[in-house]
């Protein structure tokens, strides 16, 4: 505002800085995406011409992502895990929102901070601590009761728990913010008109929360799909996509099929992120 009134050399310098920053922001993403369309066995220059082989070709050495069974399987596991994490964390996020907005109990402010903490614990530590507890419990049952609790060994169940443990903080914060904007007189009006508590919740309060629930669900889905640090320690034989991709990047060296997956994920997550932003920007909140 202030700088706008007198276009000076300073303002021009400032604008160039901002433009340079956005180029910096975009450069690696463009590089990761663009080589998906290069007709070459390596994701590098020179440009050999446009191709869609890295998506659709079905023979080696140019095996496209939609025919690469390990990548597809990884994508499937990621999808299953992300769906579980998103639904669970939205559910608990909603109960947490009611707890902290409507509830009144001793130590509420302290517990609210406790709710935020999982977000700042490094993901690696969440991963190892859950791994340790789950393995200890499983070993205990095995030694004491000769009972093998397979689900407490590294695998999809532990990955879901590990991701859920910090993603719930995100959904709770988003849904709490929305519930705080709720006008209590709407519920009172419905109650005065003779509606039961359950009916008020179903027809008034939950529909009001729905944009926040959907948006935070999308965010939870995306964060889960892309998580690596926590997943790394809890993964069993069913490797989700990020782990499969990392293995290829680190061990085999990469072909442009990884660029194709990157492009696919960037477009997918970009679109989902846009949807979640627009859902939250609705007009019913004044």
């Amino acid at each position: 505002m202030l700088l706008q009134s007198n276009p000076s050399p300073f303002l021009w310098g400032y604008r160039i800085y901002v433009a340079a920053f956005f180029i910096f922001l975009a450069a690696p993403l463009v590089a990761a995406g663009a080589f998906a369309f290069n007709d070459s066995l390596f994701p590098a220059l020179p440009w050999q011409g446009f191709t869609l082989d890295w998506f659709f070709n079905d023979t080696e050495p140019k095996l496209g992502m939609f025919h690469d069974r390990r990548l597809l399987r990884g994508m499937y596991y990621s999808f299953v895990i992300a769906c579980f994490v998103a639904s669970l964390s939205v559910l608990v996020g909603t109960t947490n929102a009611f707890l902290f907005v409507r509830g009144d109990f001793p130590g509420k402010n302290a517990l609210y901070i406790v709710m935020v903490i999982p977000l700042v614990i490094p993901g690696v530590i969440l991963g190892i601590s859950i791994l340790v507890l789950a393995s200890d419990t499983a070993n205990y049952f095995e030694n004491s009761f000769d009972l093998e609790l397979e689900f407490l060994r590294p695998g999809i169940f532990l990955v879901v728990l590990g991701q859920f443990s910090f993603i719930t903080t995100i959904t709770s914060l988003v849904i709490t913010a929305r519930l705080k904007k709720f006008d209590d007189s709407m519920e009172e009006a419905a109650l005065n008109l003779g509606a039961s508590r359950a009916r008020v919740l179903r027809t008034i309060t939950l529909p009001f929360l729905r944009p926040a629930m959907i948006a935070s669900g999308i965010v939870a889905f995306l964060v889960s799909f892309e998580n690596f640090n926590t997943t790394l320690f809890l993964v069993g034989s069913e490797a989700p996509l990020t782990i499969t991709m990392y293995d290829r990047m680190a061990k085999v060296g990469s072909t442009p099929v990884l660029n194709a997956v990157s492009f696919f994920l960037m477009v997918g997550s970009g679109l989902l992120a846009l949807v979640s932003i627009f859902i939250q920007r609705d007009k019913s909140v004044r």
Binding site: L29, F225, E226, S262, G270
Partner: peptide, 19 residues
Amino acid sequence: CLIPLWVSDLIRAFGWILL
């Protein structure tokens, strides 16, 4: 600013490697 936030660390690091 919001959209790259949702691109995985893995892909961003991969992009830097290619550059």
